[in-house]
Design a protein around this nucleic acid. Structure first.
Length: 561
RNA sequence: GGUGGAUUCGUCUAACGGUUAGGACGGAAGAUUCUCAAUCUUCAAAUAGGAGUUCGAUUCUCCUAUCCACUACCA
């Protein structure tokens, strides 16, 4: 059905030419949008890669199109086991699910089916299909066989470098190198049959201006004379290089937009020329080159080392390499995937409004390539934390309590706390945290009494006069009829109970004309261990009267007062 | 070196050729409170430089500078 529509529109449109130029975009606009994320499994996906995947995904979903995951593993030397799984897992954590490329179990699909007509999606498994395309190019004069050894070319490069120039395998140099353009036909034939250290190289046209359009950068032109005759296919491992595999697969998989990193911009003319050489201009995808993510300080692109150096994750998930080196991940660092995705989306794109908080669905609705920023974006770890804080605040106390439970079980093993207790506490402290992992630091004194008292605060508050007053406060609390978390009427009764404690205590202090701050902070020092933390009434409510009194007497005893 | 790309507060960014150049993060100050945090208010902070086009340029053109990417039988 879809195929026939495509055929019809193609027929209509190819008949209509303006100034001899196909109205390519008319054909394209009829097609279902199909984009791909095509990582190479040479290392864990870093946040820049996740952003590229995200933009592809947002673009596809907004257009009701498909998002395809393709694994570009044509470099057997640099292949790293486990990365493929890591990539899929990372995307999944971010809420990005490929329409094609992986199955429900998260495995890359390797046999074609109705849902996966373009399988396999690993280029290593597509190995047999590339050679014919490369040979076709040779046959039609767009490529040639090259027999130069790596050492020979290396020597040429070094020589050029010594002369402060660059060796380019192009229209000039190829005339004096060993290839099917210079060697006698017979010798070529023999070399092809008897050796396997040859390649197929693209034959760049001489002195031609390639005119290109980028969805983000606009019109770009480049002269073919500055281009290298890139290797397309290697006989040694019978594998294509990126350029060939990429173009062939994008064509076969009916990709409509290629959204990829800026590092690919220099090879865009080659890709244009390849589409032309194959005669696929009419269905050529449109290109969008994303700027790079830059390190927070200094210059250059964000790298793994920056994270280690500056103390933030550069990977979505934790990764342990073969040497046992651990790289932290956003997930393990306690980031919510929503926050991570939101942060990433806004690093190089904005909606044109002042809205900063977006759900994935909102991103899908608002995203547009023409609002993607052309220049590189320095990553700001502080802003990332801020995003997480915003998402943490959106969580309900019950959700937070559940997330906090694991930390609690680890910090105070063997102790059970009622869901109500933890929930009420979470509601109270959530505004103070960026991460759930911060909770323990913020409220540990609700679970364990302080064992030390900050010297600075002891000196400040433990004056003879204060201590005398505190002893009276002790007696006062002791005589008080108080409702604590166990006796109050759940979350509903909390405010009233806290209010009651507060009224009683402040009333008593005022009555005696003591200094509010001095008394309260001395109590706080005894409850918390230092002069910080929540309101005294809150603390008493949560730890209860008995514990409060116990902490006061223990402190007095420990400090010898 | 060559080719291409980029350049607005410290950072992310907004601004039909006409704005006191806006917002957010971070920073500072103040308010508040029993401390800390949160919150609220306020403040500081930018169009890389130079020409040109124009009544008028952050915006268009050119030059310079700086930065980035690419310059592999890697992707």
């Amino acid at each position: 059905m879809e195929a026939t529509i495509l055929a019809v529109t193609t027929a209509i449109c190819t008949r209509h030419k303006i100034n001899g130029r196909h109205i390519k975009y008319n054909i394209m606009s009829e097609r279902k949008r199909r984009v791909r994320f095509a990582p190479s499994p040479t290392g864990p996906l870093h946040m820049g890669g996740v952003r590229t995947a995200l933009y592809n995904y947002l673009y596809a979903k907004q257009a009701g199109g498909d998002f395809i995951l393709r694994i570009e593993d044509t470099d057997s030397q640099r292949f790293v086991p486990g990365v493929e799984k890591y990539i899929i897992e990372s995307l999944k954590w971010c809420g990005i699910y490929p329409d094609e490329g992986v199955d429900a179990q998260g495995n890359v699909v390797d046999t074609p089916s109705e849902r996966h007509p373009h399988a396999p999606y690993r280029q290593s498994q597509r190995k047999p299909i590339y050679r014919a395309y490369a040979e076709e190019l040779v046959k039609n004069g767009y490529a040639y066989y090259a027999f130069d050894s790596a050492q020979e070319l290396d020597a040429r490069r070094k020589e050029a470098e010594a002369n402060k120039s660059t060796f380019i395998y192009n229209y000039q140099t190829r005339k004096e190198l060993r290839n099917s353009l210079t060697l006698p036909q017979e010798e070529v034939k023999e070399l092809l049959e008897t050796t396997n250290n040859w390649t197929i190289r693209f034959k760049n046209p001489e002195n031609r201006i390639v005119k290109m359009d980028d969805l983000i950068r606009g019109h770009i032109e480049m002269n073919t004379n500055t281009l290298d005759d890139k290797v397309l296919w290697k006989a040694a491992d019978e594998l294509p290089t990126y350029h060939l595999a990429n173009i062939v697969d994008d064509h076969l998989m009916e990709i409509t937009e290629v959204i990829r990193g800026e590092e690919w911009l220099p090879s865009l003319p080659l890709h244009y020329l390849l589409y032309e050489a194959f005669g696929w201009q009419d269905s050529q995808p449109r290109f969008a080159h994303l700027s790079l993510l830059l390190k927070p300080d200094g210059k250059g692109k964000l790298s793994k080392r920056d994270g280690d150096r500056l103390g933030f994750p550069v990977f979505p998930l934790k990764w342990v390499n073969a040497e046992g080196e651990v790289s932290r991940g956003y997930r393990e660092d306690g980031y919510y995937p929503e926050a991570f995705v939101n942060m990433l989306a806004l690093l190089g794109w904005n909606p044109g409004t002042e809205q900063e908080l977006f759900t994935l669905d909102e991103l899908i609705n608002s995203f547009s390539l023409d609002r993607v920023i052309k220049s590189g974006a320095k990553f700001n770890p502080d802003k990332a934390k801020w995003f997480n804080q915003e998402y943490l605040r959106k969580r309900t106390p019950a959700q937070l309590a559940e997330e906090f439970a694991a930390i609690l079980a680890e910090k105070v093993p063997g102790k059970e706390f009622s869901a109500d207790y933890v929930e009420q506490l979470c509601a109270l402290i959530k505004e103070r945290a960026h991460f759930v992992a911060d909770f323990w630091d913020i409220c540990s004194y609700f679970f364990v009494a302080p064992s030390e008292y900050a010297e600075k605060d002891v000196n400040k508050f433990c004056t003879p006069e204060n201590i005398e007053n505190i002893k009276k406060v002790y007696a006062f609390i002791d005589n008080l009829e108080l409702k604590d978390i166990n006796s109050a009427n759940g979350a509903a009764g909390k405010d009233e109970a806290v209010h009651h404690i507060e009224e009683a205590l402040t009333g008593y202090i005022k009555e005696n004309e003591w200094k509010m701050g001095a008394v309260m902070n001395t109590l706080r020092l005894f409850f918390v261990g230092e002069a910080k933390g929540l309101g005294i009434a809150d603390i008493i409510y949560f730890i209860g009267k008995e514990e409060a009194l116990a902490r006061i007497s223990r402190a007095l005893q420990k400090l010898g007062l």
